Simulated scan of single mutants.
Amino acid sequence: MIILKSRQEIAYMRQAGRIVALTLQELGKRVRPGVTTGELNQFADDFIRRAGGVPAFLNYQGFPASICTSVNNEVVHGIPGLRRLENGDIISIDVGAFYQGYCGDSSYTFPVGEISEEARRLLEVTREALERGIAQAVPGNRIGDISFAIQSFVEGHGYQVVRDFVGHGIGKKMHEEPQVPNFGKPGHGPRLEPGMALAIEPMVNAGTYEVAVMPNHWTVVTKDGSLSAHFEHTVVVTEGQPEVLTRL
Score class of each variant (00 low, 15 high):
residue 165 F to H: 11
residue 173 K to F: 08
residue 206 A to P: 12
residue 79 I to L: 11
residue 6 S to K: 12
residue 216 N to L: 11
residue 99 Y to H: 12
residue 33 P to Q: 04
residue 132 R to H: 01
residue 222 T to N: 03
residue 16 A to N: 08
residue 85 L to R: 13
residue 199 A to Q: 04
residue 184 G to Q: 09
residue 91 I to S: 13
residue 77 H to W: 14
residue 190 P to M: 02
residue 234 T to N: 09
residue 245 L to R: 07
residue 233 H to D: 05
residue 152 S to P: 01
residue 36 T to D: 05
residue 200 I to W: 00
residue 27 L to C: 03
residue 54 V to E: 10
residue 110 F to Y: 15
residue 111 P to E: 13
residue 69 T to S: 11
residue 132 R to S: 06
residue 95 V to C: 07
residue 115 I to V: 14
residue 165 F to V: 06
residue 35 V to H: 08
residue 118 E to T: 14
residue 198 L to M: 04
residue 93 I to Q: 04
residue 211 V to C: 09
residue 98 F to H: 14
residue 64 P to L: 14
residue 46 D to Q: 15
residue 106 S to F: 02
residue 88 G to R: 02
residue 238 T to P: 10
residue 218 W to A: 09
residue 158 G to Q: 09
residue 62 G to W: 01
residue 160 Q to N: 13
residue 221 V to S: 11
residue 37 T to A: 02
residue 88 G to D: 01
residue 240 G to K: 03
residue 147 S to M: 05
residue 51 A to E: 10
residue 55 P to L: 10
residue 77 H to K: 14
residue 178 P to R: 02
residue 119 A to V: 02
residue 43 F to Y: 12
residue 127 R to E: 12
residue 104 G to Y: 11
residue 84 R to G: 11
residue 33 P to A: 05
residue 5 K to W: 05
residue 194 P to Y: 04
residue 34 G to L: 07
residue 240 G to R: 06
residue 16 A to C: 06
residue 33 P to S: 03
residue 237 V to Y: 09
residue 85 L to G: 07
residue 16 A to E: 07
residue 195 G to Q: 00
residue 131 E to K: 15
residue 200 I to F: 00
